[in-house]
């Protein structure tokens, strides 16, 4: 028919890469909280990447003449009880933690998302079985769970990742399940069912992309917790075996000389908390901004 709603000024067809990047970044740039968090995180990322540039020392290099020193021109943050440069150990240590923490979160995301999608989409018996098992896992205090797992399989970086995956997956699954249960009632899901789509296609292609916002925010927070957990495990001697520059074990080692040299405890503690706080601020700011314009 002749009359109809007409085309409005044309929006350029496919937005360019830069435009899309700017769109993706705009919620971060709009929130000061997120920016502060991002700055802290980026600081550690840069330290990890450029570790050999930012310090002349190796993290394992011992110097018997310079043990338990405070900050000085030669050693900007001081040295530990074996005369190793603290800044070098922190910088190289950030390489470890910034790989292990995101990796373990990625693993728990993969497991949790799969379980959450299955439980939320199919419901009924599958939901009951999956969620009750996960509830049982969640009933254990996380730290106890880590201790049990590491004690059973031994301390190594792989096992730390496995432990954090097992402890984190139930939380992810709960979140994804609730999002799935909401999204599956939308009409576009019914439209997909009316095309006779495979349930797995519907779960991964139709549902998951629309749940990404809350999942990303949750993952940011989880990386923070993972940093914390790796630190805790290191402190308890269950993390990476020495002499790896693990922040948690640095605190543990420095603890014995805390009266002689508080710096060896202070710096790694600050490193852990600044990274955790940075990730949390980033996640908070991100969720606030993404919620606001929904």
């Amino acid at each position: 028919m002749a009359v109809s709603e007409q085309v409005v000024p044309r929006v350029s067809a496919r937005p360019s890469f830069w435009q899309r990047l700017r769109d993706a970044m705009s919620p971060i740039l709009a929130s000061k909280v997120a920016l502060v968090g991002l700055a802290l995180v980026i600081f550690w990322i840069l330290a990890a990447i450029f570790a050999p540039v930012v310090t002349p020392y190796s993290p394992l290099e011992q110097d018997a003449d310079a043990m338990n020193l405070g900050p000085s021109a030669g050693h900007p943050l001081g040295t530990d009880h074996l005369g190793r440069d603290l800044w070098a150990r922190l910088a190289y240590g950030s390489r470890l933690i910034l790989v292990l923490a995101p990796l373990s979160v990625l693993c728990s995301l993969a497991v949790g998302t799969t379980l959450g999608l299955l439980a939320g989409y199919f419901g009924g018996l599958i939901d009951e079985v999956v969620m009750r098992i996960l509830d049982a896992l969640m009933a254990f205090p996380a730290i106890l769970l880590y201790l049990i797992i590491i004690a059973a399989v031994g301390a190594s970086s792989t096992n730390v990742v496995i432990a954090i995956t097992i402890a984190g997956a139930p939380g992810v699954a709960r979140l994804v399940r609730s999002l799935t249960m909401d999204i599956r009632t939308r009409e576009y899901i019914a439209a997909a069912q009316l095309r006779g789509e495979n349930p797995f296609y519907i779960m991964w292609v139709e549902i998951l992309p629309n749940a990404r916002g809350p999942i990303i925010v949750d993952a940011m927070l989880r990386i923070g917790y993972a940093v914390f957990s790796i630190g805790t495990l290191g402190f308890l001697g269950l993390g990476l075996p020495p002499p790896a520059p693990d922040w948690g074990s640095m605190v543990c080692a420095g603890r014995r000389y805390i009266w002689a040299n508080p710096w060896a405890v202070l710096w790694p503690s600050l490193a852990i908390s600044s990274l955790v706080v940075g990730l949390n601020l980033f996640a908070d700011g991100l969720s606030e901004e993404t919620m606001r314009y929904q």
Partner: peptide, 28 residues
């Protein structure tokens, strides 16, 4: 139910939905 139907039959039966905001997948 639709999951037990033949693809040929599924194709012949389509639906137009009520809510313009949820009729399309926002991601595609």
């Amino acid at each position: 139910p639709v999951s037990d139907r033949d693809l040929e039959l599924i194709k012949e039966l389509q639906m137009i939905f009520q809510n313009p905001d949820s009729t399309m997948n926002p991601s595609f």
